[in-house]
């Protein structure tokens, strides 16, 4: 205590000066709104600079969390997008509430092959996350494949770059449907089989999922028609398509769960029996 008092006495002039200075500054700022405003302006400038630096330093460490948040948000948006795409092809149904049985789950792609004739992907979610075989998998701009088998934490997906997989597709304008098959060449080039030749197609039409398989909802854009030929005498088109999706560069995917899947399967079983 004695020491503090001594120090105070020793530095009494600066202490007194700064005390009175603070007093007069506060007096001055209370008196004049201009000074108050200017001071706040400089204060704001300084604090914004400071927060900018803090943000620039801190944002890097937050990237992972933000990434997760964005993925979550995308998952919800994807669901809305899918249900909207489903409706827009039936403009007269807008007013009626419609069942949309599809749910979306996000996943990271752990392994992806695209150079073989039969390619597979591995996702980091499995039966623990509610993934079951025969669920559709899409990415941000197109479809990826169909779940083939699941383990507890991982799932194996048949890529659409697989000669065995056929996906039901149609064009956005015309309701004629066909099957999308990989021709085995580059990862963009596909063929669409079984489109009847009386359908009105033109080059550059957008191809969307057909909604007739229980894997994908109707209306996910996949690619566009690059070449169109009528095969003489067969009654079918020969269609070449180019995909929007670059399947060699997929890091995130969304698994689509169809909650009516069992219902549809059991109906199909009844028919075959």
């Amino acid at each position: 205590m004695q020491r503090i008092l001594n120090a105070l006495l020793q530095y009494r002039n600066p202490v007194l000066y700064f005390f009175l200075l603070a007093l007069s500054v506060s007096f001055s700022f209370n008196q004049s709104p201009f000074h108050q405003y200017s001071f706040q302006k400089y204060g704001f400038y300084l604090s914004s600079k400071l927060y900018y630096i803090k943000n620039a330093l801190g944002s890097y460490y937050d990237l992972k969390v933000i990434n997760q948040q964005l993925l979550k948000e995308n998952e919800q948006l994807k669901k809305i997008e899918l249900s909207l795409g489903d409706l827009s092809l039936y403009p007269f149904d807008f007013k009626q509430p419609k069942r949309f049985p599809f749910k979306v789950k996000r996943a990271n792609v752990l392994k992806n092959s695209y150079k073989n004739q039969r390619n597979f992907l591995i996702l980091n979610i499995g039966s623990d996350n509610g993934i079951q075989p025969e669920m559709g998998v899409i990415s941000k701009d197109g479809i990826v494949g169909v779940v083939h088998s699941v383990s507890k934490n991982y799932s194996n997906v048949i890529s659409i770059l697989n000669k065995d997989l056929k996906i039901n597709v149609r064009t956005k304008k015309s309701p004629a449907f066909g099957s999308l098959v990989w021709s085995g060449g580059s990862s963009f080039e596909f063929k669409i089989e079984d489109i009847v030749s009386n359908a009105k197609l033109s080059q550059g039409d957008t191809i969307v999922t057909g909604g007739m398989s229980s894997y994908f909802p109707l209306g996910i854009p996949i690619g566009k028609i690059s070449k169109l030929n009528k095969i003489q005498g067969s009654g079918y088109y020969s269609v070449d398509a180019i995909l929007f999706n670059d399947l060699s560069q997929i890091y995130y995917a969304y698994v689509i769960e169809n909650s009516d899947f069992k219902e549809i399967k059991s109906l199909q079983k009844n028919i075959s029996q």
């Binding site: 002039n13 600066p14 000066y17 009175l20 200075l21 007069s24 500054v25 007096f27 001055s28 700022f29 008196q31 004049s32 201009f34 000074h35």
Partner: peptide, 14 residues
Amino acid sequence: SGGAHTIASLTIGF
């Protein structure tokens, strides 16, 4: 005046 005289003369005194 706003308080400018106070601050200036106080600083001069110091």
